[in-house]
Amino acid sequence: MANPEIESELDGIDKVAVMLYRLGLSLAALLLLCRGSRALTGLDLLSPSHWLTALAVASGLCAFCLHLYDKRIRFLLQGLGWGALLLAACGAPDALVLGAALATLSGLAFKEQFCFAIPGIRLLPVLLPLCWLLEALHLAWASALVALASGLLLGLLSLAKWRMPLHFDIGDRSRYQL
């Protein structure tokens, strides 16, 4: 979690971790946009199973590279992200994989709203669970609209993150609970 006014010394692993976290956010945003456009246009850029696996990978990547002071919240979000990957690998029902991946992304969006003032991000912790619910209810049009809105907002977050210096994601190392 960041304190932009504090510039910690970054080593190579820190730089790679921050870039992978941002890459995971970008990938998740693109995947949500693909999901929404698929239902609205009928164009299948990815099969549903490939889409879901890629979303699990994106959320797992973000969870793997998460910088968060509170170890309990960090553990929960990492568990959800890695849980999505494990569920996908085990062939669990799609609803469970999607739920774990979207829960991870919701938690990350919730975290980011406290760290950075990015417009619209406060909606993501509501929109992503709503997307899961609409998918579970097989309401394709409604799910597509929510996925598009979520993808756009996550894309804005991702763009804002890429424009920030890398040390913003690390913050004050002395505040991390180990």
Rank of each mutant, 00 (worst) to 15 (best):
L102S: 05
T41L: 15
L66C: 11
K71W: 01
S59V: 00
W51A: 08
L98W: 10
S49L: 03
L127P: 09
H50N: 14
P125F: 02
T41H: 11
L105N: 10
R38Q: 15
V126L: 15
D44V: 14
I118R: 02
I118D: 10
L66H: 06
A136M: 04
L128P: 11
H50T: 09
E112G: 07
L102M: 14
I118V: 14
I121M: 13
G60R: 00
L43E: 12
G42E: 14
D44N: 12
T53G: 03
L123V: 00
L98K: 02
L128D: 13
L127A: 11
L130S: 14
L76G: 09
L105P: 03
A84W: 04
E112P: 07
S37W: 14
P93N: 05
V57F: 11
A63P: 03
L52V: 00
P119G: 08
A103S: 15
G99Y: 00
L134Q: 04
F110W: 15
P125L: 03
P93Q: 07
I121P: 01
A136W: 02
L108M: 14
R72E: 15
P119L: 08
L134Y: 00
Q78C: 12
T53R: 13
L87C: 14
L127N: 06
F114H: 15
L134G: 00
F110C: 11
L55Q: 02
L40W: 13
T104L: 11
G81W: 05
L86P: 00
F64N: 11
D94E: 10
I121N: 08
L76R: 11
V126R: 08
S106F: 11
L52G: 01
C90H: 07
L68W: 07
G79K: 02
L55V: 01
V57T: 08
L105R: 07
T104Q: 11
A117H: 13
A54C: 11
G79R: 03
H50D: 14
A54H: 04
P129F: 09
S37E: 12
A100K: 01
L52I: 01
L61A: 12
G91M: 05
C62Q: 10
Q78G: 15
T104Y: 10
I73K: 09
H67S: 14
L46A: 11
A92G: 07
L128S: 06
P125I: 05
A117K: 14
K71A: 13
L133V: 12
Y69P: 06
L124I: 09
G81F: 03
P119I: 12
C65K: 00
W132Y: 08
F114N: 14
I118C: 13
A56I: 04
D70M: 04
S47L: 10
H67M: 15
G79I: 05
S47Y: 03
A88V: 05
P125M: 03
K71S: 05
L43M: 15
A100E: 01
D70Q: 12
L108S: 09
L86S: 12
L87F: 15
L66G: 10
A100Q: 01
G91H: 02
A89E: 09
T104E: 12
